[in-house]
């Protein structure tokens, strides 16, 4: 549950996204409070990634509004939305495979030009992700999957976001690595960055998140605190692989 007095950071109202004639997201309402970690779970093709991309501005809206810190940002192009503090870590990590790790990180600060601030944030990211510091000079494409995911998160942090949109950080990673990633995400949240997390790994996501939304074929079907959803028999049956 959001703490008393926490202000709404992000509010989606009736958001629709279409690929040509096919509507992938059919009116999503979603709310996220400052400092919160919220997760969006659902089956493949439910529209989770599409919703996240619409928030980041990499996909245009077909309807509805996105309010961020009280202002409608639905018309802002992606590169301007990033400047307001919304950063996306895309599905499949999207690191620049031919650049070095350090160059990747520096690219995260592409929109900034405060050298001192960037240096300080680099140091913060290194503290959070010691593995990345060890591999600074390596070409990013040669990193392991888990390291690439860490790098993608680190790169997003260098834009100094208020809201981090994470698209399936656990994708294709071994369970031990996934846990490490979630620890990193947790520590990012503790630094005051709000997080909207899209996950297939519903169990883990709901454990870490304060609240969750369940999405099914383009619509939100359930929402509640992480605990509530974890205990919900329908959720358990559909997403946690339990048949009772």
């Amino acid at each position: 549950m959001p703490s008393e007095g926490a202000s709404t950071l992000l509010a989606l109202d009736g958001v629709k996204v279409a690929y040509g004639a096919i509507e992938a997201v059919k009116g999503v309402d979603l709310e996220l409070f400052g400092g919160e970690m919220v997760c969006l779970i659902g089956a493949n093709g439910a529209g989770k990634t599409t919703t996240l991309n619409a928030i980041a501005g990499t996909l245009p809206l077909a309807g509805g509004t996105i309010r961020y810190r009280g202002e409608d940002v639905a018309r802002l192009p992606a590169h301007k939305r990033l400047r307001t503090g919304i950063a996306l870590v895309p599905e499949g990590r999207g690191i620049f495979t031919r650049l070095t790790v350090e160059e990747n990180l520096r690219m995260g600060a592409y929109i900034r030009n405060d050298a001192d601030g960037i240096a300080a944030d680099m140091a913060r990211v290194f503290d959070m992700l010691p593995r990345i510091r060890e591999r600074l000079r390596q070409v990013a494409g040669t990193l392991s999957g888990g390291e690439q995911q860490m790098l993608a998160i680190g790169r997003a942090l260098l834009s100094r976001p208020r809201l981090l949109l994470l698209d399936e950080p656990s994708m294709g990673l071994a369970p031990l690595v996934v846990e490490k990633i979630f620890e990193v995400v947790q520590s990012v949240r503790e630094e005051g960055v709000s997080i909207l997390l899209v996950e297939q790994n519903a169990n883990l996501a709901l454990e870490f998140a304060q609240r969750g939304y369940v999405m099914e074929s383009g619509r939100i079907t359930l929402s509640g605190s992480g605990r509530e959803l974890l205990d919900d028999p329908a959720v358990r049956a559909a997403y946690l692989g339990e048949s009772d």
Binding site: N53, L82, G94, F96, T97, L99, Y110, A156, S159
Partner: peptide
């Protein structure tokens, strides 16, 4: 650098504000 990023991954390049 923006070109290099765009060439490697267009979505990620947009995500970092290019």
């Amino acid at each position: 650098r923006a070109w290099a990023a765009m060439r490697d991954d267009e979505l990620a390049a947009r995500a970092i504000g290019i």
